[in-house]
Design a binder for these strands. Structure first.
Lengths: 123, 123
DNA sequence: TCAGATACGGATAAATTTTTCCCCTGTTGT
DNA sequence: ACAACAGGGGAAAAATTTATCCGTATCTGA
């Protein structure tokens, strides 16, 4: 695994939540799992822009942070299901607040973001 | 400036808020500005782990996203003060929710994060 | 038998972000 | 005269995160 070279700060709550939520797709993974999309292949279809590899890596991190649980069914073809842990569920209202703010201000945000970026490739 | 090569997604509120809040120090900058630390040098002292350069860059992005306003006093030695815009203020409750979650679960989080990372350099 | 679905993971490359280093302006204090 | 502080910013290196490409398995349906 990658070995950090720059010191980590874990002083306040913001540092801590940042540590478990940073990662391009983590919030969306939590969200979709909460909505009932449990299997890796379902999640990959919900987030087609992400490479299969990163989703697996981020799922593993979420699991190591005890936000989700992974259940492997010993069947063939393989079947895996993720679910939120109790701890992970406490994060749902938080993510919901984030999403609401974004939704409430969508137009303004979209405009500001695009303005700042010139002509970025979208979607 | 850096020119994006990977497409941006701006579909849902989560994408949008992510776009303005991602950046290692942005949330903390907003927080400290809200607490009354307005001048660049004060902010740098509050966040000594960040390089001076990045703070300036992230402040500029926050400004372009209209979350903060920059006032330059034409005096010598130079004096600059940042403040939250009305728009930026709407984000404070959101950040507060993030911080609270992190605070509530600090012990568990600290433990989980350190466990996953082996022996990371801290602070 | 071959294509496709399910799932996992190593190695390497590319993209992106952050740090480091050096330089600029002008005033104040020693 | 010189260091320190106030505020900036360009260029390049380093750190970190994501993407791409490949290879592992077993079973099902055409």
């Amino acid at each position: 695994m990658y070995e950090r070279k720059i010191p980590l700060s874990l002083n306040c709550g913001l540092d801590l939540i940042g540590e478990v939520l940073y990662g391009k797709w983590k919030i969306r993974l939590l969200w979709f799992i909460n909505e009932g999309y449990k299997r890796p292949s379902e999640l990959q279809r919900k987030i087609p822009n992400a490479s299969r590899r990163v989703l697996n890596m981020q799922l593993k991190e979420l699991e190591e942070h005890e936000l989700i649980a992974k259940k492997i069914y010993p069947v063939v073809p393989p079947k895996v299901e993720y679910s939120l842990t109790e701890f992970g569920e406490t994060l749902i209202p938080v993510i919901s607040v984030l999403g609401q703010w974004g939704d409430e201000h969508q137009e303004r945000l979209r405009h500001l973001i695009l303005k700042r970026l010139g002509n970025p490739p979208i979607e």
